[in-house]
Structure formats: structure tokens, C-alpha cells
Amino acid sequence: MSNIDLIIEERASDIGNFLVGRLLPFRKKRMVGPFIFIDHMGPAHLPPGEKLNVGPHPHIGLSTLTYLLEGVIRHRDSLGTDIEIRPGAVNLMKAGKGIVHSERTPPSHIAEDKIVHGLQIWLALPKEIENSTPEFTHVEAKDIPVLKEEHLSIRCVLGEFGGMKSPVPMHSPSYMLELKADEDVEVNIGDELFGESGLYVIEGSVETDGHVFGEKQLLIAKESTLCSFTLKKNSMAFIFGGDKFPEERFIYWNFVSSDKETLESAKTKWKNHQFPDIEGETDRVPLPAEKR
């Protein structure tokens, strides 16, 4: 296992009425490049009448990236955005100095039998734009470039790869690739990667240096440019990473910052209803109780 520095197993985490598998942050590896938080949602079966229902909650100092494999989620935020995200599309919300959003099953889907499956990702912002104006970008699935080779497809979700460039805006040098194989296939793409790199097996398995790694495992590379492995038949994996920030990042609840005082200020603002509101939504996710 010459190029594997760390293996991280998914850990169950409760986000209200929904259980997810948390990958980052991890006690031995807080970030991979700018990626500071990754939750694997589902696949969760929601029968008629049940719904995803994450009420208004705030963010600062990061960009959220939502990527669905199955299902549909309605995103609303304090910028006035009201949009449904579907499989293969990308929602990127730059929180900057502060934004509030909600994530719910659309009303038209509540009565249906449904599955929710995808990734919720946070990318920390560079220090110079941590306090910038919030922005929201939605990119449809058809606009995400795909490179198809024999038995292998590579979607460039974020960044640049193989002559492709994702239309999803980047705030620091980074990348995220979705790989799918319909037969066992050798993958050797390290020459286009940089910085820190992680490989997450979401379906099937990968083999490297004689070892097989299955679903719900995140492999952290010692050296991104040495990234080579066998993606097994009917498998899907994500490769992500980028340049490491020179400063440490601190995280509390939904807040990320290079400055601890900024986190304390965000706590106070949320308690005192000083974040912007989402029009027509009055329920709020409360600040977690402080641990003693």
C-alpha cells in the first residue's frame, strides 16, 4: 500500500431526522486540500409521507457543494434562491460572511415513495474571501463535462481534468472527479492531480498494491501524483482534493473560519437572529448546546 497514507471509514452521524455517513472531518485528518467536511447521505428510502426536512440554518467561511446520485432536494436560501437539485447537478453556495438555507423534500414529492442519496460537501474559503458576499450557483447535470474511455467514464464535477473544465466556480485550486467502471479498469490519473488527494469508494471496490477496498472507505494518498488503482466492475468512486491552505481552519457546527473569534461572533449572531432570513420560513435549527 505504498501510496495510501490513511484509511477513513464512514461513521454514522445524526443531522436531525436523517442519518448520514460522515467522512470528514476526522481526528487524524481534518481536511483534504480545501475539503473540510463530507457527508454521504443515504441511500435512504423515504416512504410516502416522510421527507427530508432540514430547516433554516446558517453558514460562514465556506462553500457548500451538494451532489445527488438519487432523489431530489429543494434548496432555499436568504439570497432568494429557490431551486430543486436533481442527480448529477451541482449546487454550490458560497457562504462568505453569512448565509442561511434550508434543504427539504419538495412538496410535490412528499406523497411519493422516494430515495435520497448523495454527497454534502464543504470547501473552506481562502482567508482573503472568508468574509466575502454570499453567492449561489446551480449547474445542471448536462453541463458537467464527461470523459468516456473504454469501460471508464470520468465526470469533472469541480476543477479541470483531461482537457475538461467544470463550470462550477472554484475559490481555491481544487478538483472533484466522479469515476464509473462497467468492467475492471486500470486508472492512472495522478499526473493531473495536485496538492492533497482522497479517493472515496461509494459503490463497488478498488484494488491497489494487492489490497481491495470496498464501499464507504476513504483512502488518503501520500502523494497525489502517484494515484493509480484498479476500479472494479460496476464500481463508482470520487477523487477529490487540492492545495492545502497555509493557515489552520477551525470548525464549529456550520461555521468555518481561520479565526476563532469569528466563530464566536457567528454563534452570537445566530442566537440573536442577526443572520438574514429565508422569506416565508420561520422555523430555525437551534445552535447546539455547548459541551461542558
Rank of each mutant, 00 (worst) to 15 (best):
W270I: 09
V256M: 10
I121L: 07
D39W: 00
S265V: 12
D143G: 03
N131D: 14
G241Q: 06
L69G: 02
L231A: 04
R22E: 12
A95R: 10
G88T: 10
V256I: 08
T208L: 07
D77Q: 12
L52Q: 04
P246N: 09
F136N: 05
L123M: 15
L46A: 04
E290Y: 05
L147T: 15
E160Q: 14
E247G: 08
L158K: 01
N3R: 12
I129Q: 09
L158E: 07
S13P: 00
E247H: 12
A44L: 15
R11Y: 07
T225D: 13
G280T: 07
K29Q: 12
F136T: 09
E103K: 14
P107S: 09
P288H: 08
P87D: 05
H151M: 06
T105A: 11
V212F: 02
I83Q: 14
G198W: 02
L52C: 09
E10T: 15
L177E: 04
F250E: 00
T262Q: 04
I7E: 15
D277V: 14
M31Q: 10
M176F: 03
E183H: 11
T230Y: 00
I278F: 00
H171D: 13
E160C: 08
T81Y: 09
A181G: 02
P43H: 04
S174Y: 05
L218Y: 00
N272V: 14
S265R: 13
G33W: 01
T225W: 01
I8G: 03
T282Q: 13
G42M: 11
Y67H: 09
V32R: 10
F18V: 12
K271D: 13
E128R: 14
E140H: 05
L231Q: 05
F18T: 15
L287A: 10
D191L: 11
G21L: 01
S166I: 02
H273V: 13
A266W: 01
I60M: 06
L79W: 08
G118A: 15
T208P: 03
L219E: 00
G242I: 01
I121Y: 01
I121A: 02
M170S: 04
K165V: 14
I73E: 02
F238N: 02
E10K: 15
L79S: 13
S166Y: 04
H75I: 06
K51D: 05
G241F: 01
N131C: 07
K291D: 12
Y175G: 05
P167D: 03
S108C: 14
G198N: 10
G204V: 01
E140G: 10
I202K: 04
